[in-house]
Nucleic acid binder design. Structure first.
Lengths: 346, 346
DNA sequence: GAAATTCTGAGGTACGTAAATCAAAATTTG
DNA sequence: CAAATTTTGATTTACGTACCTCAGAATTTC
C-alpha cells in the first residue's frame, strides 16, 4: 500500500496537522520536529497523491496561451489545437485562455506578457520573438514565479522554463542534406545547381536558425550547390507567390527551392503556374492541406513538419509539471522533426 | 462551476443514491426515474470527475505487458521503457507487470495471453505474432472484456482495441523512396543497381509489411533498381553479420542495403569489415547506439525509427482510456516514423 | 385489500489531502 | 517563576465520487 499522510504522522510520532504543516511549508514547526517528519517522509518513500491534493484544493490550473494572429495554415492549425485543448480542459482540471497578438510584433507580445504578469496564471505559453524587451519581461515573469514555455519559436538563454518546438538548426540541416542528396542525382553534374530560399522573416529566430542549418550543410557537403539571397515573404501567401514567380522568371536554371517558413499556398500556386520543362526540387516546412496535396502531386518533394498538436499538449504537460514543481520527462517532451515524402503521408 | 452528482440530484428531483444507481448501472431504478436522471445529466453536461472517482474506488489500473525476450537493442530498449513506466506507475495509479516470452514463438505468446485471461487485469499490451491461435485468444480476451493493445507489431482485423506502432507499409515505402532517390545520383546511371534486403523473419507482420512497401515503391518508381532475395537474419546480430558478409562477397556490385529488422550490430560489423572502394547506400530501422554511431560515421545513410518510449506511453494511455470507456485522441496516439539523417540526430 | 415485491430516499463512511479552529503543551522571554 | 509566545495535537469540514445500509414509499401480485 502506498504510504499516506497518516502513516507519516504515525512514524514521526506527530499529529496530522504537523505533517500537513511540513508538507505545505506552513509556519509553526520547530526544526527538530520538521526533521523528524521529513525523515519519516523519506524513509517511507512518501509521494503526495496529486489527484487527491487537487481534489481537496479544488484546484484548476489556469494557463494563458499567447498566439500570433497569423493568416497561414500552420498558425491557424496551432490555434485550433489550443482550442481543442480548451475543449478538453474541464476534464484535465485546466482553464486555458487564448490571447491573440499581431504577428511579428514584439511590442504587442511584451504588452500581452505584462498583462499576464498582472493576471498571475499558473503558467503561460507564447510564440517568442527574440528581442531585448521580450527577454526583459520573461525575467520579470520568472521572478513572479510564473512558469513559461516558448512555443514553436524559442528564446534561448532567457528565463523561460521550457521550449515546446523543434530544433530548427537540425531542421535546416536536414533540409540541406535532403536537398543536396536529391539534387546530386538528376540535377547536378554539369558544374552546379542554384537553389532559392523562401523565408518568412529573418527577425524570428526559428527562420534564422533553419537558414543557418541549411546553409551550413550545403556549404560544407555540397559545394556545387549555390544558394540565392533569401526571399522574405512574411509568411504571407500572396507575397510569397509573387516573389517565387519573379525568381523563377529571372533564374531559369533554378534546381531547388527551400521554403523554410509558412505561406506555402503562394509558393505552390507559383509552382503550378510556372510549369516549365523540368520542375525544381522543392522542400518545404509544415504539413498543411496545401503542402500535403502538393506532396501527393509531386510538386513538393519533401515536407518537414512539426506537429502543432504535440507541441500544444506538451506545453500543457510541462506547464502543469512546473506548476507542481515536478520534473518533466525530457524524452517525452522532445518535439520531433517529421519528414514526409509522398510515401509516408499519414 | 462544473456540475456534480448533487446538481443532478437536485435537477432531476431525486436523491443522490438514485443518481449513483443510474451513473454506475446499479439495479433498482424504474425506467421513468432513470430517464429523468439521464435527462438531467445531459442537460447539465455532467462529466464524472475521474480523479475523484478513482480516489473513491482507490483504483489502480493493472496492466500486463507481454514482451519478447529478444537480444537486440530495440527490444532491450522497449523493455527499458516499460520498466521506466513501472517506476512511474505509482504516481499514475497503474500497476504494470512485465511478462517475458521467447521471441518468434506464437505458442508461448498464446500461453501468456491465456494466463492474462485468468488474471483478468485492466488491460494487456503485447507484441503480436500473426497466427490463427493468437487471433483466437484475442477474441476470447475481447469477450472477457479485457482491453488489448498490440505493440510494435500489429494484428489487424482481430479483436485488439488499438495498435501502438508505426505504419510499416508506409515505413517500407519511405525506405524505398529514399533508396531510389539517393541511388539515382551517384550509383545509378549505367543501367541499374542491385539492392539487398535484410529482414528478421517473414513470419512477423511488421517485417513482411516493410518489405511489401519497399518493393512496391522500387518496382513502380525505380524500375532500374533490382532487389535480391530477402535475407532472414532472425534479428540476430551474429547471423546477420555472416549473411551480409556473404552477400557482399558474392555480389560485388551491391549499391544499396535495406535492413528492415533488428540485429543491426551485425550488419554494421560486416560493413566495416568489407570496406571496399565504394560503400553501399544503407538504410536501416531503429535508432540504437550502434545505428546512431554508424549514421554519424557515414556507414549508414538513413535510419527509420519508431520511438519505443512513445509507443509504451501511448499504449498505457490507450489502455487506461479503454478501461474507462473513454475515447482516445487519435492524433495524439499516432506513432510516427522518424527519419534520421546524420543531420537531425537528437 | 393485504402481502409481497420493487423502488427510492436519507444518511453514513470511505478515498487521500488541504485547510481551518481551538485548546493544550512546550518553550522562550522578562 | 510567571507571563507571553511559539509549537503541537485533536478534531472538523471539504473536495467529488463510490458504495453501503436501512427504512419507507410505491408498485405489483394474489
Amino acid at each position: 500500500m502506498k504510504p499516506t499522510v497518516h502513516d507519516i504522522a504515525k512514524i514521526a510520532g506527530v499529529s496530522l496537522a504537523t505533517v500537513d504543516r511540513v508538507l505545505n511549508g506552513r509556519p509553526g514547526v520547530r526544526s527538530v520536529t520538521r526533521g523528524k517528519v521529513e525523515e519519516a517522509i523519506t524513509s517511507l518513500g512518501y509521494v503526495r497523491d496529486l489527484a487527491a491534493a487537487n481534489l481537496a484544493k479544488s484546484r484548476t490550473y489556469s494557463f494563458v496561451f499567447i498566439l500570433p494572429a497569423n493568416d497561414n495554415s500552420f498558425m491557424i492549425g496551432l490555434h485550433e489545437e489550443v482550442r481543442g485543448a480548451v475543449a478538453r480542459s474541464s476534464a484535465e482540471r485546466t482553464d486555458i485562455r487564448i490571447v491573440d497578438v499581431p504577428p511579428f510584433d514584439a511590442r504587442a507580445l511584451v504588452a500581452a506578457l505584462e498583462a499576464v504578469l498582472v493576471e498571475k496564471p499558473a503558467g503561460v505559453a507564447f510564440v517568442a520573438i527574440d528581442t531585448r524587451d521580450v527577454r526583459a519581461v520573461t525575467e520579470r515573469l520568472r521572478q513572479a514565479g510564473i512558469p513559461m514555455v516558448t512555443l514553436v519559436s524559442d528564446l534561448p538563454d532567457s528565463s523561460r522554463d521550457h521550449y515546446a518546438g523543434i530544433d530548427n538548426i537540425a531542421a535546416g540541416r536536414t533540409a540541406g542534406s535532403l536537398m543536396g542528396r536529391f539534387l546530386s542525382g538528376p540535377f547536378l553534374g554539369e558544374g552546379g545547381a542554384t537553389v532559392a530560399v523562401l523565408a518568412g522573416s529573418m527577425l524570428v529566430r526559428d527562420h534564422r536558425e533553419r537558414l543557418e542549418g541549411f546553409s551550413a550543410v550545403i556549404d560544407q557537403a555540397y559545394p556545387k550547390v549555390h544558394i540565392l539571397p533569401v526571399l522574405e515573404g512574411r509568411d504571407d501567401p500572396a507575397l510569397a507567390e509573387t516573389m517565387i514567380a519573379d525568381t523563377l522568371r529571372r533564374n531559369a536554371d533554378i534546381a531547388g527551392i527551400y521554403s523554410l517558413g509558412a505561406g506555402n499556398r503562394g509558393l505552390i500556386r507559383a509552382l503550378h503556374r510556372a510549369r516549365g520543362p523540368s520542375r525544381p526540387l522543392v522542400i518545404a516546412h509544415e504539413l498543411t492541406a496545401s503542402t500535403r496535396a502538393a506532396l501527393a502531386d509531386g510538386v513538393i518533394d519533401a515536407v518537414l513538419n512539426q506537429d502543432a498538436g504535440h507541441e500544444v499538449r506538451s506545453a500543457i504537460r510541462v506547464l502543469k509539471a512546473k506548476a507542481d514543481g515536478l520534473p518533466v520527462l525530457a524524452a517525452q517532451e522532445r518535439i520531433r522533426i517529421d519528414i514526409f515524402l509522398k510515401d509516408n503521408l499519414p
